[in-house]
Each structure stands twice: as C-alpha cells, then as structure tokens.
Nucleic acid binder design. Structure first.
Lengths: 337, 337
DNA sequence: TTGTATGCGTTATCAT
DNA sequence: ATGATAACGCATACAA
C-alpha cells in the first residue's frame, strides 16, 4: 500500500478515461455493465480505495453529522448518542461528537469548529448556561439542518425532539399528591433550560389543581451536582412544615438525596416520598427503588438520527413536524408507596 | 454568505497572488508582516472561511481521530470518551465516534469506515467477541497510530492503555479473604477479553496465596447483562458449600446481584460480602454501598488522547512506553464490612 | 456509451 | 518577499 491507487491509475491500466472509472465506481447508469465489471474487478485487484478527501472537496459534503452534548459521561446522554450513532451509521454517516461541558463558551467553540470542519448537519443539546444563539446563525443561513434534542430552543427552521416535560412533571407531582403528600418540594435544575422550567410548570399546575398553594419554599433550584445534596438537606430541615414529598429533576440526584436522607434518619417513603426523572438504570437499583418518569433516551436518539438523515436525503422529512414529542411514562416504585 | 470567499477572491481584491494569501493566513515566515496584516484584515472583512475539504485533500490529513467503543451507553465508556474528547478538542482534533455494539462484525465495518474516511489515528476498545484483528492491518501498514484502551490486544507498534487488572483482581479478592470469606465466587465477563481474564488470574492467585483451592464452582462466566442475574442466584443456591464472598467483574452487575440477593433474603455483607469493579457512580448509591476497584476512566481517556496527539504531532511520544498502566485503587465500603 | 476538460480550494515547489 | 503553477483525487458538464 505504498502508493495509493487513484482512478487515474485504474484508467491507465484499463485503457479507459478517468471519467469512465469514476462513473463505473459510482454505478452511473450511462456506463455499460461490461465496463463497470471490468473497472470494479481491477479496482479490487489493485486495492483501490476511494479518497474521501477528494470526494468531499468535489461535493462540498462530508457525510458527517456533528453532535454537541453538554456532557458525554451521563448515562442519559450516552444513551441518546447510542441511538443517534446506530441510525447514522446505518445510513452511512459518521458522527463527530463534542461536549460543551455545560459551558456556552465551549458550545460556541464547538459549533464553530464543527461548522468549519464541514458537517452536513448538527444535533445539539444545549449547555446549562446557554443564553444566546448566534453561534448557530451560520448553520441556519447556510441551510445546514440543525436539530435540537432534549435541551432545546426554538429557532426558525430548526426541529426539536423532546418529551412533554410539563405534563411529565405534572404526572410526577400528581402521583405524589395521590400518595398523600401535602407539602412538596421540587428540586429543579437551571430554570433557563426548557426541560427544567417545563417540569416546574407541571409541578405548579398539579399543585394548583389540587388546591395546594405554591410557595417559595416548595422550590429549590440546584446545579444537581452530588455535592449540592447538603443544601437540599439543609433546606428540608429548615422548613417550617415538614416536607413529605420530593420531586427531583433527575434520578442521579434523587439517588443522592435518598442516600443522604436515609443517613439523616428520614424514612423513605413513610416520612418523605421521592420521585425522580429519566428512569436511569440507577433508579431501580437504589433502596428503596426510585419512582420516576421514563424518558426514552435511546428512542430519542434514533428519532433524532432519522430526522437528520431524512433531512439530508432529499430534504423530504419523514417527520414533517417541526417538533417531535415522545411519549413519557410514570414508573411507580417503592420510593413513593 | 451566498458565495463562499476563497483565497482567490482575497487575492484578487488585494492584488496579490493566491499563494501569498495562503501563506499569510498560515503565518508563513516568508511573508512580510505588512502583507499578512492586509490579508488577514481583508479576510475578516469579507468573512473568509478556510475550506477544510480542500485543506484535507491537499494535506491528506483530516485532523480527525476515530474511536471505536463497544457501547456508548455505559458510564465507564462515556467517561473515558469524555477524557479523550477533552484532550483531542484542546489539540484541535475532532473525534469520530462509533460503537461496535459488542460485535466483531460491526467493529470490522467501523474500522473500515473510519479508515476510508481518513482518520489520522484510531482508538479502540475491543468488542466482546473480537477474535481476529485483520481489520486493523491497514492502519498498521499505513502507519496510522492505533491505540487500544481498556480492552486491548497486543499488536506490533500499537500502544495499549490499561490498568493492572490482574493485581486489581488480586487485591479485590484478598480483601474479601481478609474480611473472612472462605468460599468465594468470581463472576466474570467474557474470558477472551484481557480485562476479565486478567481479573480472574488475580482472583486465582489470591486464592492460591491463601491456600484456598480454586474449583470450577468458584467461577461463573457471564455476559453481565442484568437479565443474567438469575443464573447467578441459581448458581449460588445450587452450590454445596455456601458462597460467602462475591467478586463481580463490574459494578452495575454487582448492583443487580445485591438487589436480587436481598430479595432472596441474603444479608449483605453478613451472609455474603460483595465487591465490584470500576467505581461507577452507582457503587456508592446502592445499599449497602458497594466496595469496588477504582478504575480511572477519565484519566484513561485523557492519557489515551494525549498519547494519540503526541503520536500525531511530530511523532515523538510523550509516553514512549508501548503500554501505559494506570493506577487502580481498592475502595472499601459497607458491602464487604 | 465513453472521453475531455475543468472545477473544487488549498498547499507546495519553483522561479523571480 | 512574492508570483506562477502544478499537484491533490474525484465529479461532472459538455462533447463525441
């Protein structure tokens, strides 16, 4: 494999033109089957490899889809990615993955890098603190498909793929109320992100529906980092009327809460009932097993992948809707019984 | 941004040659500062973007690193990836990530695809059932850096980055013995993979050292899928002398074992002590908290990234060793007390 | 059905 | 210090 074989080499040894070789290799209709066979045979014989760089340059396409996620090392995100990768791979696309590490600055950098490297489309789940969106302007201007997943923002001509966080939050809350909780605490993530603000809305609507007044003490905005658990405990202890129900914005943090509350001699679920969010594998392994909302990450990824691919292949979208909403599901386990 | 500005456009408007523009943009020493300034100014003015496709074609490099992992949606692997991504990104490389889904066939496909798409280097963690390695021959032949992570195989001129699984397995086992366990069971993954076979070796050596005989009943090879827990339970129940110590090849499966054993009224740790592997987040959240071996996934990724980068930049390896071994650590929690 | 010629945007090698 | 020009490997519009 010292010298790379090109279509010119093939052309010369076959006594045809480079154009013929190129068209044969691409199964172009205007080439006779006989010629195609000869070309393909010789290509295999000589170990010809198509040079993607040249193809890319010629077509101005990279056959590559960019992905920006907040963090790679979260089970939810990596599950989404697994779904995306499967679909993309089957469709012959490569995935360039980068993480914003929850920082808008890094997200901007990533968006620029991926743009410069010529991705054919971009999938994004927004960072924790992203507030402006000019870094996506180039994509929109140049009609590069841009799709938001999970942590979304409404931009013109961009699809979003989400679940109905508000109604999921509503159901989670109503379940706690149905189990007899009177004084709930919702532990939320950054309320600038749709996923968390929507869940809060659902929480509030459920309270309202059941004539429970929403007070400041019913909400704690958190970064959901394990180390922040102590603030939760402090809040719960400081409150006048004892908290008897906890709706936590994700399972991992909920699991940490359970652990810490148990350490503080709270009994779960008899003292405090807890429900999480995501249905992470961890939710069924903690004690007591954690009630939660199933968030179909893999399906989300698959759908996102399909959406991109269909955007790219012919432009006709299989899912013409601008926004796809997946079905969530309440999962009841011991932590709320 | 209707028409993309090229160096020719810049050259024309500036009244210089394209070569000069190119060199200015790349800060070539043979260009006067004055000219460089003019070029750069005009480039910004006109919104020039370098075309990566053309650069790639010209240089026959993609500035891209390929990664093949068995599964994206495992917390360990995604943590490794997070480390790789960080380093690669800082060095200006993109990451193309694909998953083999634990299948050698898919791994071969991925290896070929990434090769064809012209990655500058490849990082691999092997699939469950990979037995031959011809799909990496092209990389070696063409001197494309090939580095194995975690699930490795010794190939000429390929680095490997691992922990000392044997001594880790030894320590885990010895810890169980020190806690008074007499009849141990090791639940292993596929023994074709170094990580599992090495841990088993450590297990056996520890037994030998403490004059415990290794019998068939002390080992259960498993696919470590949650659904396989019932086989573990069945095995434990079927055994003549009661098992009092369990060394499980990863934390997730260990957590499932704990859950199921508790359901079967085993008391942990008093009836059976359990130790896992990896120090996944889950290990400290289950009840009882799981003893384990810390496997520094993120550092592994960082090191792998650095190794690749240094291979690529200048070829002089920061870590000249052919094989890097990271330090592991025994973490003792309630499950073995 | 096939060949010819040119474009794609940069880099690199000679000249000057 | 700068210009001219040839790669780089493929795709494709136009000819034949």
């Amino acid at each position: 494999m010292d010298k790379r074989i090109t279509i010119y080499d093939l052309a010369k040894t076959l006594g045809v033109s480079a154009g013929t070789v190129s068209r044969s290799l691409n199964d172009h209709p205007s080439i006779s089957q006989k010629t195609k066979d000869r070309v393909i045979f010789m290509a295999n014989e000589l170990g010809y490899k198509t040079n993607k760089f040249a193809v890319n340059l010629s077509k101005q396409k990279s056959n590559t889809i960019g992905v920006i996620v907040p963090k790679l090392n979260s089970i939810f995100m990596s599950t989404v990615l697994a779904g995306i990768e499967k679909v993309a791979n089957e469709a012959g696309y490569n995935l360039i993955i980068s993480q914003s590490l929850e920082s808008m600055e890094k997200e901007k950098l990533n968006a620029k890098t991926l743009y410069d490297s010529g991705v054919d489309a971009l999938l994004v789940s927004l960072a924790y603190d992203t507030t402006d969106f000019v870094h996506f302007a180039n994509y929109i201007k140049n009609k590069i498909p841009l799709i938001f997943i999970d942590r979304v923002h409404n931009l013109p001509n961009c699809s979003t793929i989400i679940i109905d966080n508000k109604s999921a939050g509503f159901e989670a809350t109503e379940h706690l109320i149905a189990q007899g909780c009177k004084n709930l605490l919702h532990i939320s993530g950054n309320l600038k992100r749709n996923v968390y603000s929507e869940r809060l809305k659902g929480f509030q609507e459920a309270l309202a529906k059941h004539n429970l007044k929403f007070k400041d003490a019913n909400l704690l905005e958190s970064d959901l980092a394990p180390s922040s658990v102590k603030e939760v405990i402090a809040h719960i202890k400081s409150v006048d009327i004892p908290i008897d129900g906890l709706f936590v914005a994700n399972d991992t943090f909920a699991a940490h809460c359970i652990k810490e509350l148990k350490k503080e001699k709270y009994n779960i679920p008899s003292d405090i009932k807890i429900i999480g969010f995501n249905n992470d594998p961890i939710s069924e392994l903690v004690t007591p097993a954690l009630s939660t909302i199933n968030y179909p990450g893999y399906e989300l990824g698959v759908l996102a992948g399909q959406s991109v691919i269909s955007h790219l292949n012919g432009g006709i979208d299989l899912h013409p809707a601008n926004s796809i909403t997946l079905r969530h599901k309440l999962i009841i386990r011991e932590s709320t019984l």
